[in-house]
Amino acid sequence: MRRWLPIDFGRRTFLGGGLLTAAAAVVSGRSASGQPAGHDGHGAASAPGEAPPSPHRQAHGAMITVGDVDDVRNGFDPTAMLTDWYTGEVSTLPDGRRLRTFEVYVEDKEIEIAPGVMFPAWTYNGRVPGPALRAVEDEKLRIVFKNYGSHPHTMHFHGIHAARMDGIPGAGQIDPGEEFVYEFDARPFGCHLYHCHALPLARHIHKGMYGLFIIDPDPTRHPDLADVARSRLLGTPENAVWQEMAMVMNAFDTTFDGENEFYAVNTVAHCYAKKPIRVERQRPVRIYLANLTEFDPINSFHLHANFFDYYNQGTTLTPTLKTVDLIVQCQAERGILEFTFADHEPGLYMFHAHQSEFTELGWMGMFDVVEAVS
């Protein structure tokens, strides 16, 4: 791993005096356009000829990284990840059922998690988090899993399957250069996940081996709530109304001391603060949210100036919590958030973890609420 500072700093050292911002500015080697505002709420002075700082880069005072991560070098873009559902290849079995096939491979890969900060990740399909797999209730699923990495790995799916498909040592673990095929039925519907279950488990998860696993409900199986089920079924007119997003809360221990230095949604610290997520005011929003943070017992999601309905683990078609603005998830917990900005004025609306330390170390973003584009 390439050191980004000549000495090691723990995360609490970063918090002292806004060192995170200063350090990132020093080492990024890139333009520091959009310098954050100071805590007094006034923007940093611009050099002659420079544009004034953008409002979203002034959020949370000076506690924001400076510079930009190279998405091309990473091979993934956190903004594209929000809507990049991997639906696999669909075919028909002899009995008439649909077979959905995914191909997933392991690759060791150095990724940039903050400007100038590199992390030696273990990835599914070259990205962290791995691809957001999406299927439909009761389909037959086939996941062709190949290990091009340097360690034994698995794919453990949170769902219902046979013991031999559990993705643990002795049941789906493969060595470098090997291949395994997982097969099981897509059930129950909901917001699920997958992750490596090889030992030591904490190391494999922390290194980036996890991803969302969404099973859409089959409306024919839920006649009493068929309209709701159709709204979750990708490709239907009812679903097209929604602005759906995949978000995985994660963190990175860059000094490998069991304490995270950076926090994020979809890997890149402060990505959605610098590049706010564009949301049309009149269309509802649905977030598939999962917590894969290692080394911290919980993570959280707080929405500013608004409230949402929450479906814990997504296995119900009615909310498990109504009209809340904050939820807490332990590791591997997940759920669906639904809300709207229809009654709001356009503007930038913040969302973040409500552990202040997580927010200051990268887990903060903005929704850019706009009128519909004609």
Rank of each mutant, 00 (worst) to 15 (best):
R2A: 14
R3W: 05
W4D: 14
L5C: 02
L5D: 04
L5T: 15
L15R: 04
G16C: 04
V27E: 02
V27H: 12
R30H: 07
S33N: 07
G34Q: 11
A37D: 14
H39E: 12
A45L: 14
A45G: 04
P53F: 00
H56S: 15
R57D: 13
Q58W: 05
A59M: 15
G61D: 12
A62K: 02
M63Y: 15
I64Y: 04
V66L: 12
G67L: 14
V69M: 08
D70Q: 06
R73D: 12
N74D: 07
F76K: 03
T79W: 05
L82E: 09
T92L: 11
T101Y: 02
E112A: 01
P115W: 06
G116Q: 05
A121F: 07
W122S: 15
N125I: 10
G126E: 13
G130R: 01
G130T: 01
A135F: 04
D138F: 11
L141Q: 04
L141R: 07
L141P: 08
I143F: 01
H151G: 00
P152Y: 11
P152H: 13
H153P: 00
M155R: 09
H158V: 07
G159A: 14
H161P: 09
A162N: 13
A162D: 15
A163K: 14
G172R: 04
I174V: 13
D175R: 05
P176I: 03
E178N: 10
D185Y: 01
C196A: 09
L201E: 07
I205N: 04
I205F: 01
I205P: 00
H206Y: 06
K207Y: 09
Y210R: 00
D216V: 00
R221H: 06
P223F: 13
P223D: 09
L225G: 00
R230L: 14
L233V: 05
G235Q: 08
P237Y: 12
N239C: 14
Q243P: 13
E244I: 01
M245F: 15
M249V: 08
M249S: 13
N250L: 05
D253N: 06
T255K: 13
G258V: 09
E259V: 08
E261Y: 08
T267I: 11
V268G: 01
V268A: 05
P276L: 09
P276W: 04
E280N: 04
V285W: 07
T293C: 15
F295E: 06
D296Q: 10
D296W: 07
H304I: 00
A305V: 08
F307I: 00
F308Y: 10
D309L: 01
D309R: 09
D309A: 05
N312S: 12
N312I: 02
Q313G: 03
G314P: 08
T315N: 10
T318M: 14
P319Y: 06
P319F: 06
P319V: 04
T320R: 07
V324L: 10
Q329P: 01
E333C: 06
F341I: 02
H344C: 08
L348V: 13
M350S: 11
F351V: 03
H352G: 05
Q355C: 04
S356A: 14
E360Y: 08
E360T: 07
E360I: 06
G362F: 05
G362A: 01
W363T: 01
G365I: 03
M366V: 08
D368L: 07
V369D: 05
A372V: 09
S374Q: 07
S374W: 02
